[in-house]
């Protein structure tokens, strides 16, 4: 069966160990979590988890069913085939040297990258976008030698209910 990436949006009661339960359930049954984002929603006792995983449709259905069994899970939604917006963010620290200062500046201007902090020896850039945009930006940044990066998991939002 065809394997593909799936985006799963999970509403949960905001209990202390709910994340451990979700990670444990999936890990214990041999499923992978590729990325994960968690935070509260407009209701303070409810959190939303957006998770990406890959597998066949049957595997993903099994994952959804396993999650649905958890007492603190309110709903599980596969956003893969519904209209939704996707964003990730990455923070990149580039080392600034006498040799590359000009080139870095040019690249930042040309790509309209957002600099959130710069010092004598470094510059920190923030990039948001969907997966392709981020991958593209990272490829562009590659030649400058990225000292460190932190990339969030994917967040997704349905266009309508």
């Amino acid at each position: 069966m065809e394997k593909k990436d799936h985006i799963i949006s999970i509403l949960v009661y905001n209990k202390p160990d709910v994340l451990a339960r979700i990670a444990g359930t999936l890990g214990g049954k041999g499923y992978n979590i590729d990325s994960l984002c968690v935070n509260t929603t407009t209701q303070k006792d409810i959190s939303k988890i957006v998770m990406t995983t890959s597998g066949s449709q049957a595997t993903v259905t099994r994952i959804e069913n396993q999650l649905q069994r958890l007492v603190d899970v309110i709903s599980v939604d596969d956003l893969t085939n519904v209209e939704s917006l996707h964003r990730e963010m990455v923070l990149v620290r580039l080392n600034r040297t006498a040799q590359n200062t000009e080139a870095v500046k040019d690249a930042i201007d040309a790509n309209k990258w957002k600099v959130i902090l710069s010092g004598d020896t470094f510059v920190i850039i923030e990039i948001t976008g969907d997966k392709t945009q981020i991958d593209f930006a990272l490829a562009r940044l590659e030649p400058f030698g990225m000292a460190d990066i932190t990339r969030t998991g994917l967040v997704a939002l349905k266009l309508e209910d």
Binding site: A20, G24, L70
Partner: peptide, 16 residues
């Protein structure tokens, strides 16, 4: 014990 039994209970609670 809630950590240990998480995978083998339907649910568990630590009363805080």
């Amino acid at each position: 014990i809630t950590g240990i039994t998480r995978p083998c209970t339907k649910h568990n609670f630590l009363v805080r």
